[in-house]
Design a protein around this nucleic acid. Structure first.
Lengths: 288, 288
DNA sequence: GATTATGTTGCAGATCTTGCAACGACCATT
DNA sequence: AATGGTCGTTGCAAGATCTGCAACATAATC
């Protein structure tokens, strides 16, 4: 919508790949050097990009700080963390928490495995959406039309022989997942890694996040991992309970649910609302 | 420099505080609603902001992903990590890695304490610059004029009775740190937490990062923690050695150091270059 | 059902952005 | 030391892009 901003933002993913100098940026943006310079200057002033001693640009500290601050404000994360830690303490494996947002699923929390052989992942990373157990859960929970739309839009990379091959297979899998209320990924992303996942549900019963336990074959077999399923589901349910439990504001609000009325489908429905009222300024509107 | 981009970027810190609706954004930006809307739309298209079901905006997934990707590309981090892990394995305490960038110091890596009582921190968080041991090291290493300039610019919040009170005290402390080549924070930020830190030096001998070991009083006393100093310094030196060791590109380059010539001080000198050539696209220019 | 509160769109004026071209700094080569 | 090349920086004029307005749309509230 805004050309200038559009261009400026296009610089970001470019720099995420690694430092670049003015000309490289200008070339890839397909604009004149001077234009690129001014955009970069503005980004620099905001601390979003940093200029190295060798004059090349890379993403800056404030970007990290922003992402950090935003992440810390996610309510599910806060509530879930102790439960995840507890589960990890019990089984020792890597525990993840993930949310869905506009065709992407990303980890927002993680408790590291206590085994020496671990799965690679990082908070903030997007997960392979067509195969990850948490992703399947979150997409499976979308209303039918959007679920289908998402499935069609996606790519289906063949990470392994067991990766989901195409949209049809994915939708099938989603139906199963939806039915059973939990999901697995048995070597769909990394041949030797398995996961079991369960959804965390908010006030209206919609999945606001999903959690999973992952472990490589060399530590436990897929069958052994599956024996953890009840425990994983119990943990997820406990988090859900606590999540819906907390009222929006300490002094209860008039009509906290506005999603309960059936809505016409003119706009495709967006979901996942992992953010709720702990933030002080939130109450401003209700005050005077 | 660019008004539109400037405004758009100003939205980010605002949303980092918590979700906000269109009007709130417009008000705080001091622009018309329609203007704010268009900016938000553009940010949305890039996935930088996300629109919740209740129409409010918050920071989006792509922002996390960007920060994540950029962080993973930091070379020092990559090299340092195994060393940090090793140190943690030996002593059990929290180990941090931090870099300096334009008046801010932030953690770029961390290995969690294995003790139940832990220090709170998070990768990507900025550290209290006037008291943290790693911050002192990094600032102490700046060339004199800039060091002074930074010291003057800073605020000196009194976290505890032992916090650095003002610029003068800070500069004094920096002189000591510079002299001895290591630093501590003994209850300067949190009454009960102590840290020891050592610098990681790059090719030109400048500090490109700093690492620290932190532990609460209840686990080990400050004196006990100080006995770890030699070990911390050895680890930092090992990282430094490996960091300068790796040449810029596998096939060695002509003149890898361009900082070695004394430079006139017309522009205040920027430092810290924790980013070096592992990235494939980097070599593009050298190719044809 | 009227009323408020919020978000959205089309439009015309003007600001702000753009690309150009020339300049300057720096490096490398002869 | 001189010359040529690369890359970043600046002033300017043309005009594309952005802005604020006002009216409209929609949903919540009384």
């Amino acid at each position: 919508m805004s050309q200038t901003v559009d261009r400026a933002l296009s610089i970001l993913p470019l720099l995420a790949e690694g430092p670049a100098n003015l000309e490289q940026v200008a070339t890839r943006l397909e604009v004149h050097k001077s234009t690129a310079l001014r955009l970069l200057r503005t980004l620099h002033e905001h601390g979003i990009v940093y200029r190295q001693p060798d004059q090349r640009y890379r993403l800056g500290a404030r970007l990290f700080a922003l992402a950090q601050e935003a992440m810390e404000n996610l309510d599910v994360r806060e509530i879930a963390h102790p439960h995840l830690a507890e589960l990890n303490a019990a089984c020792g494996h890597t525990v993840h928490l993930a949310v869905y947002e506009e065709d992407e699923v990303l980890y927002i929390d993680k408790v590291e495995s206590r085994y020496p052989v671990r799965m690679y992942s990082r908070i903030g990373k997007t997960v392979p959406i067509t195969v990850a157990a948490v992703a399947k859960l979150l997409i499976a929970d979308l209303p039918e039309p959007e679920r289908r739309a998402v499935a069609e839009r996606l790519d289906y990379p063949r990470y392994t022989a067991r990766s989901t091959p195409d949209a049809a297979a994915f939708l099938n899998e989603l139906a199963t997942v939806r039915e059973q209320g939990w999901a697995t990924d048995l070597g769909g992303h990394e041949e030797s890694i398995n996961c079991v996942a369960a959804p965390i549900r908010g006030a209206e019963g919609r999945a606001v996040a999903a959690m999973s336990v992952s472990a490589p074959n060399v530590v436990v077999s897929a069958d052994e991992l599956l024996t953890l399923l009840p425990r994983v589901r119990r943990t997820a349910d406990a988090i859900s309970a606590e999540y819906v439990g907390r009222p929006l504001t300490p002094q209860r609000d008039s009509t906290p649910r506005r999603d309960s009325t059936p809505r016409r489908d003119s706009t495709p429905r967006r979901d996942t609302n992992p953010q709720r009222g702990t933030n002080p300024q939130r109450d401003k509107r209700a005050a005077p």
